[in-house]
């Protein structure tokens, strides 16, 4: 067998208190089927736990799923925790039931992209691919 290069390593995190991870699992499975190595944190994780896990696993992208409506608090908290853990350069993609007016704001705060429940899976996969490629170019650059 040949040595395969993996497309990228992704952490799927579920911060906050909502216990619905069907969506997170569907995305995780789609990413795996697209050639990604996917690590899942399980439900009800704190932003700090997600950040430290992302660093330890040296992932290329963090994907967050929040269905409780607390995305305006939780997404920025994960960004901050990542920053504090010296992983502020890792792109973070968010998903959930998110009103249009919140999206722009969250992106301004540093989220790479935000998806809502209506987004086609292929669009999501393409964004993960793009974010991974960009990050990997930086990550593997020899200074």
């Amino acid at each position: 067998m040949d040595i395969q290069q993996c497309r990228g390593r992704i952490l799927i995190g579920k911060p906050g208190l909502d216990g619905h991870d069907r969506g997170a699992k569907i995305i995780a499975r789609s990413l795996r089927d697209d050639g990604f190595e996917v690590i899942y944190t399980g439900i009800r994780r704190t932003p700090e736990e997600i950040a430290l896990t992302a660093i330890q696993e040296d992932v290329d992208v963090v994907g967050l799923s929040v269905l409780s409506g607390a995305h305006n608090e939780l997404f920025p908290e994960v960004l901050k925790a990542l920053h504090q853990a010296k992983g502020g350069d890792i792109p973070v993609i968010g998903g959930g039931i998110i009103p249009e007016e919140d999206i722009q704001h969250l992106k301004e705060l540093g989220m790479y992209e935000i998806f809502t429940s209506g987004t086609p899976v292929q669009t999501i996969l393409n964004t993960f691919r793009e974010a991974t490629e960009k990050y990997r170019q930086r990550k593997h650059k020899i200074i």
Binding site: C6, R7, A28, R29, R32, D33, E37, I39, Y40, T41
Partner: peptide, 10 residues
Amino acid sequence: SGGAFLGDRI
């Protein structure tokens, strides 16, 4: 696919 679901960490 070459991908993987790494679930031990949960």
